[in-house]
Design a protein around this nucleic acid. Structure first.
Lengths: 353, 353
DNA sequence: CTGTTAGCGCTTTCAC
DNA sequence: GTGAAAGCGCTAACAG
């Protein structure tokens, strides 16, 4: 920057200003400076600026996995919002491990982010302590933690499955199973299982049956294996809910492969409304969550909170619930078209929350 | 850090050392310092350290999309390698736009990354100039650019499709179509299309037919739409190659929905070997690329290059080709099990490169 | 093994 | 509208 200043015949301070404010530098000076910057190929160094201005321009976002279209969508929405305020997102993924999350929290804090957005409300004690001491806005998402660190933008995973169970019950299904990953698995999956057990109880169903298959992130393959065990262990089962759409897809294709008609022999439902569920044949019943909505809201809340933090005030705690909906499709036999006699594509939806 | 030093009765320098070297600080002093750090909840500030040491500890990685299991895998492998050297990855996604990539390159350079890994070899002139002037290691991946910026870890996208076409030709298919996104689309998709056209020519096939559908990233939905247009425009078509597995999956399910048997009426193949292709029913023929291998190699090459850069030397240019393979499955009728008569699961593979 | 001094490249603050 | 001085929180380099 000193080089640029010298060549433009101004002080470094003026160069710095030309790169920011649109006010205090005269148009003539600015264009001259810009020309020199272009010539020299100079690129502003934010890390030096961060040190002196005490604004790093970073926001940390922690997600369980980068390879999951639900979290990617939330991520994408968050960065879009951050971009509008010239904030960069530091992405970290925990691989569904709170221990790894704890390490991530510390390495992130070393970069002095101006805020941190987490997935879920379950952290190690040390991780939580670090979050509380960091003195920056904290937002937990994709969950409704009983004892949140501070702000929340999420929904109850358990409740979504209760809604789904009720819908299946209304359609006449009584013997309903659940497939999820082996504990310790992702916390949200366990919440969904909790919702399943609660619904079995509430609806007075005779029996609950959970098949645990694979370690998080469980996927298509685990669904294929899980459904086989489900049928072996509980031949009477009429419907199976899977902890995610990929698992449901795996379960469904394994059924087709073995000649078990879906939904004729067995209904299947998932969670997450991945694109694959809309286009699978038969299409998959699922729970649709506003992934991008979570990201957008968390991002905007973060901007608010950072603004407050910068001018020394504090944003009151916000707990935002994001709506979800049960989307019924062919795999639970609740959409017009049976697999073998194709027709319309529209699914029946009903909004919750 | 000054607080910690005071409370531990040492200088700040000793605290700094205790947090790094394992040598020069006595065990007693170190434990005392660590205890104070624990008490105070102190977290090292890397941005200040970066300024003085001239090592930011950042490496930038630019990918087209965060929501793509191929790139996620590469990404994951890169960060795993970087972690071993205490380097943080700054992720940026271009949304398949070189203009956005150009902006990203500049914002990334503002953070003074110690190296930059890009997807593809196609950049704007300004983007390329910035990369060249940055004086940090540059690695282009997922491609074999004719005029690389510096290092490369990739493969020829065109060649993969030529291999796939040859295989289909050997199986007796002659009327083969191609589905991809509308230009300007992702550069790698266009390379694959180029490979398709080249193979049509080489194999002396009567006619080439390309259906362009949707803007990148094109996905399941676009495949479903594309296949319908393909059949309308070229009713004789015997096999269709899709620019990616998701597109192929969309094409295939649309066929099933309309009662067009796959591969009976029409063979379908994709690209990328997504998990869905292995588990779809019928399973999808595809090209398997070593996504994680690209990431691992690019990461290791980057560590090498950074080491050289730090001690003032220069690593000679490396162009690494990563192997790929054509994986034949049910959707091209080249695997034992026909869709309606399930049996074994093993696919026929053959390695290239 | 530990301390002192200087300075990384910006921005804040205050002066003109 | 522009400049000068001071300093952000660390670490390199050298001294002891």
């Amino acid at each position: 920057m000193a080089d640029v200043a010298r060549k433009a015949g101004v002080s470094a301070m003026t160069v710095s200003r030309a790169l920011k404010d649109d006010q205090s530098v005269s148009a003539k000076t600015r264009t001259r400076i810009m020309k020199v910057i272009e010539e020299l190929g100079y690129v502003l160094d934010l890390s030096a600026g961060a040190l002196s201005s005490k604004r790093t321009g970073f926001v940390s976002v922690l997600i369980p996995s980068i390879n999951n279209s639900n979290f990617s969508e939330t991520m994408h929405a968050i960065s879009s919002v951050m971009e509008t305020a010239d904030l960069h997102v530091l992405i970290g993924y925990s691989d569904y491990s709170v221990q790894r999350e704890e390490v991530l929290i510390e390495t992130m804090l070393r970069r002095r982010p101006e805020g941190i957005i987490l997935t879920g409300g379950f952290h190690t004690p040390k991780g939580r302590r670090m979050l509380e001491r960091a003195d920056i806005p904290v937002i937990e998402t994709w969950d409704l933690p009983p004892d949140p660190v501070r702000h929340v933008v999420g929904f109850s995973n358990a409740e979504t499955i209760v809604s789904l169970m009720r819908r299946l019950y209304e359609r006449g299904y009584q013997k309903i199973g659940f497939i999820c990953g082996e504990p310790p698995s992702d916390a949200r999956g366990m919440d969904r299982k909790r919702g399943y057990l609660q619904a079995v109880d509430e609806l007075g169903l005779a029996r609950a049956h959970v098949v645990f298959t694979g370690q998080a992130p469980i996927s298509i393959k685990d669904g294929a294996e899980g459904i086989v065990r489900m049928i072996e262990e509980w031949p009477d089962v009429e419907a199976v809910i899977c902890v995610s759409d990929l698992v449901a897809f795996g379960a469904m294709t394994e059924c087709l492969r073995r000649g078990w008609d879906v939904p004729g022999r067995l209904a299947i439902a998932g969670f997450g409304d991945f694109e694959i569920s809309r286009f699978a044949w038969p299409s998959l019943t699922t729970v649709s969550v506003g992934c991008a909505e979570i990201g957008r809201r968390a991002g905007e809340l973060m901007l608010e909170a950072i603004k407050h933090n910068r001018d020394g005030s504090t944003l009151p705690v916000e707990i935002q619930q994001v709506p979800y909906e049960v989307v019924e499709r062919q795999s639970t036999g609740t959409q017009d078209a049976p697999p073998k006699a194709p027709s319309g594509k529209k699914a029946k939806k009903q909004k919750n929350t």
